[in-house]
Nucleic acid binder design. Structure first.
Lengths: 364, 364
DNA sequence: GGCATAAATCGAAACGTTTTGGATTGTGCA
DNA sequence: TGCACAATCCAAAACGTTTCGATTTATGCC
């Protein structure tokens, strides 16, 4: 093992001719320490390069100074990143402002969602956890609430107990999408929702039904497609839909993978995706290139900004803020011209300003 | 903070009527502990749910039981993941077999590569570090060698001191690509190499030049394109090439983002990418859909398997294995029919076997 | 100068685990 | 039974930091 940092509280105390206690207290702005002494201690610590040893702090206080973010490997690792790493960057950069570091754990296909969270708590891997793909009665949320393990979910639950979350306005997004499609003359609009019983699917269905009701359009159950969100599964599901119902003229997709799958399926059926064929609208955090982009509308969630909000809520939670105050529903940013948007992203990338990359509606 | 696990060495020792020392020794198969006692202690530990407290272990031994993997945010987070999360899954799953956990850190655009590594060491965030995008005289590798900080690089350096690495056979891959293009009649073959002075660019250039020499084709410097690897930068660079030289019939691209960029640029010039127009070959770990796939050859690096090898080298290094024995160059797996390959991946995904997803040449 | 009080600093113990070296117990032989 | 040696177990200290409560120093008043 490499040598330990040579400066610890003991050496610092010896250097200053003070006790370890006083030095520790001074570094934490203890009110019973003379301001003179505080300044002297801090100056010496800075000039000697003292860094607190996280292990010592943990053993005494029980605080690991780590937050764990869990990603669902089958969804992310095989088919491309839907923005998780952008979120990781946002989370970790924000945590660092409070000396926290982010641990990333993969939940593989053969693990239950709860197993990974349980492990984080049992092994004291982190002071709190961030997880997504929430369900209405999410067992992880219930576990964390029961054991008082701090967490911020990316997505809501329907639990009565308040807890911290960051989510997007799925109901509003789908409502907007359907209203716009209807304004373009579409009457046979399908909704593609994710399989897995996630909470956000409910919000999306609600937005869909509300828009239909407001439009005076009938609610036709066969217009609801439910499927896992891989390109392949999406392609299958949309193929089925288009085969059994040729009157469908538009699909509101769950994410960009399912948008790609829907485009593939349309091509298979000899239908051109886009404004003149099958109209495709979708959601997501990574506007990378899809088979077709013209006539595609994309509801964008800037994941880096999302990550920052997640981290801020987590820090506030750890600082004692009540969870009721840490519940944020962020708007989607609608992109009607994906190509233009990606060009804009490109120009901003040249400027290399991370804050700008989050888009003009970033209010974080 | 949540309560600490209630079972520690003290409670276990009291339960067994032994000293803390003996219990600790027994759990580690200490040779001076009676086999009877060892078995008794282990059984009690298992049934009472004893888990060692990582903080206590760290404070005494200096071992954090964590490995840190650093990703370069601008390359990964903005433009989509080139397989990093698949690698994360492979690394973390393999580390877990030795009770290690993976920390993922983002190196942002305004940080130097060394800064993140230095921080990991100074703050004792991990026992070792994994980083990629190595340069020939990589300052991170030199730093780690100087301070004896264990590391495994994903990519080689040209440093004299031996160190552990996992890399792909870039020279062999490009050699193979050029030979095959030549066998198809191509004589004006461009090489698209990454900007940034990374070691692997040298290997690729070497493979390119060696193939040309073996083929008796002239080495024309204008056939070498160097650019950052975003879709946008790639598109620009290939546009420049095609504008100034219309005789180019094939490009060996650095990764699939640059393949996409090259396809975009070809389309701009009214050239059809593929077997009858501009032939495009590339490398990468994430065979997601590109604008064109017919006539495209893809040298695939299965990142999950790569991650497993990285983790095994790291564990061996920490276990005292000399770095000279931990240097692995993995072959690329050539995919001539991307569409077929993705269908195969899909079928395997249905089977949900992670080992199979790495492909038939996985020798890991 | 002595006393009371406040300000400032300090010693000791705690957190969980590992490891060195000592103490205790068991065994074999004269 | 006593001695020497091996097997087995144990006490104490270390790691770095925080925090409780005690001790020391400084200040103001009579």
């Amino acid at each position: 093992m490499p040598a330990r940092p040579r400066i610890n509280l003991k050496t610092l105390a010896e250097y200053l001719g003070l006790s370890i206690t006083t030095v520790s207290r001074a570094l934490k702005d203890g009110p019973e320490v003379k301001p003179d002494t505080v300044a002297r201690v801090k100056e010496a610590a800075a000039s000697l390069g003292y860094l607190p040893d996280a292990g010592g702090v943990y053993l005494r206080t029980g605080r690991t100074m780590k937050i764990c973010s869990i990603f669902y490997a089958p969804e992310v690792a095989d088919y491309g990143d839907a923005g998780f790493l952008a979120q990781v960057e946002g989370v970790s950069r924000t945590l660092e402002t409070d000396s926290y570091n982010l641990i990333v754990l993969a939940q593989t296909a053969n693990q239950s969602p709860l197993e990974t969270v349980r492990r984080v708590l049992q092994q004291r891997l982190a002071d709190g956890v961030i997880f997504s793909r929430t369900t209405p009665m999410d067992e992880r949320a219930r576990f964390c609430l029961e054991f008082k393990f701090p967490f911020v979910s990316f997505g809501r639950t329907e639990l009565h107990s308040p807890h911290a979350f960051v989510d997007h306005d799925d109901e509003g997004g789908v409502y907007d999408a359907v209203m716009r499609l209807a304004a373009d003359g579409h009457k046979r609009i399908a909704l593609f929702n994710p399989a897995g019983g996630m909470t956000y699917a409910g919000f999306r269905l609600r937005g869909y039904q509300r828009a239909l009701a407001d439009l005076g359009l009938p609610w036709d159950r066969s217009m609801l497609v439910t499927s896992p969100l891989s390109v392949w599964a999406s392609q299958d599901a949309v193929r089925d839909l288009l085969t059994r119902d040729t009157s469908v003229t538009a699909i509101v997709c769950a994410n960009q993978l399912s948008m790609s799958g829907a485009m593939e399926a349309a091509l298979e059926q000899g239908i051109e995706p886009g404004r003149d064929g099958l109209r495709i609208i979708g959601f997501g955090g990574m506007p990378f290139r899809m088979p077709f982009e013209q006539g595609v509308t994309y509801y964008y969630q800037p994941q880096r900004r999302d990550g920052e909000v997640l981290a801020r809520h987590m820090l506030a939670l750890l600082g004692g803020e009540p969870a009721e105050n840490l519940q944020t529903v962020l708007p989607y940013q609608r992109i009607d011209d994906l190509r233009r948007f990606r060009l804009d992203l490109r120009e901003r990338a040249v400027g290399r300003s991370a804050a700008d990359i989050n888009g003009p509606t970033a209010s974080g």
